[in-house]
Each structure stands twice: as C-alpha cells, then as structure tokens.
Computed example of a mutant assay.
Amino acid sequence: MSKLIYILNGPNLNLLGKRQPEIYGRDTLDDIEKNCRAVAEAGGAEVALFQSNHEGVIIDTIHEAREKACAIVINPGAYSHTSVAILDALNAYEGPVLEVHISNIHKREAFRHHSYVSGRADGVICGCGIEGYEFAVRHILSLLG
C-alpha cells in the first residue's frame, strides 16, 4: 500500500474560515490541505482530503480507506459525540487513526467532552488550531517509518 493518508472532515467543517472564527479561526479546508500536503510530501507520502456533512458518506470513505490509505486523520466534528457508526467503521480499519479537533473540546460545552472516536484513535490532538492536522500527519509519518 502506498503512503496515502486520508484526512476526513465531518459536518460543518466546509464552513471553516466563515463559521465562528472566534472558535475555529479564519483558515479554510484549502489551507489545511495545502499545509498537510507539504508535510506529507516532505515525508514521502501523499494526502487525500475529504469533507462531508453526511454520516454515511464519512463511513463509506473510511471503508474505502481500508483498501487505499495507510492511515486516517479524522476530525469528525459533531459526530465525535454522537456516532457509534463512525466508531464501528474505524474499528474495522487496520491502520493508524489520529483524531483532530481544531478547538479544545474539553473547554467547551459538557456534551463535547466525550468522543466516541477517541475509543479507536491512536492519538487525539485538540485545541491546536489547524496545526493539529499537521501534527497528526507528522506523527503518522513517524509511525510508518
């Protein structure tokens, strides 16, 4: 399998840069992709970035990753706190999984403090802004050697 890292983004992350910039900043998904692509290429890997507001599409993409990707970086957005189905899909994936949240979910509303995805993730990065994605890609590269 090639060194292809899937970067999955859940609901409302298509609005990065426009939605609640006081929480999520002004950077966009395009900025995340550009930054992660540079980190990955420096480490001899590639990234493919996906975003969906639909749980089933995210699950289908995780299933696709079983055959195509050596690792997954996922920001499930609000599905972190509600989706056992995404957890189950990730449990069927055999490579490394890093969970990323732009904001510190532990400093926000109480319902955001629990993430189902964290039960499968090999690492969780939160509160580091969009740099969290780059940290995740770097960590995956170190795991892959």
Rank of each mutant, 00 (worst) to 15 (best):
M1G: 14
K3S: 11
K3W: 05
L4K: 15
I5N: 01
L8D: 08
L8M: 12
N9F: 07
N9D: 13
G10F: 04
P11T: 08
L13K: 02
L13E: 01
L15M: 15
L15H: 05
G17S: 06
K18E: 11
R19F: 09
P21I: 09
P21N: 04
E22F: 03
G25P: 01
T28I: 07
T28N: 04
T28E: 01
T28F: 02
D30T: 12
D30K: 12
D30W: 06
D30F: 10
D30P: 00
D31T: 07
D31I: 00
I32V: 15
E33I: 00
E33D: 10
K34H: 08
N35F: 03
R37F: 04
R37L: 11
A40Q: 06
A40W: 00
A40L: 09
A42E: 13
A42N: 12
G43Q: 05
A45H: 06
E46I: 05
V47T: 14
V47K: 00
A48R: 15
L49W: 02
F50Q: 09
F50H: 14
F50P: 00
S52L: 12
N53W: 08
H54D: 14
H54R: 15
E55V: 08
I59T: 03
T61G: 04
I62H: 07
H63L: 11
E64P: 00
R66N: 14
R66Y: 10
A69K: 01
C70L: 04
A71E: 02
A71D: 05
I72K: 04
V73Y: 01
I74F: 10
I74D: 03
N75E: 11
S80I: 03
S80E: 04
S80N: 14
S80M: 06
S83N: 11
S83I: 08
V84I: 13
A85D: 08
I86Q: 08
L87R: 15
A89C: 09
N91R: 08
A92G: 10
Y93L: 04
Y93W: 05
V97Q: 03
L98G: 00
L98P: 00
L98T: 07
E99M: 12
E99C: 11
V100R: 00
V100F: 06
H101C: 13
H101K: 14
I102M: 13
I102C: 09
S103F: 09
N104D: 15
I105Y: 04
I105E: 03
K107C: 14
K107M: 15
K107A: 15
E109D: 15
R112V: 08
H114W: 10
S115T: 10
S118P: 01
S118F: 04
R120D: 00
A121H: 05
I125N: 00
C126M: 15
G127K: 14
G129W: 10
I130N: 03
E131I: 06
E131Y: 11
G132E: 07
Y133E: 06
Y133I: 04
E134L: 07
F135L: 14
F135S: 03
A136S: 10
A136L: 05
V137Y: 05
I140P: 00
S142N: 11
S142F: 06
L143F: 01
G145I: 05
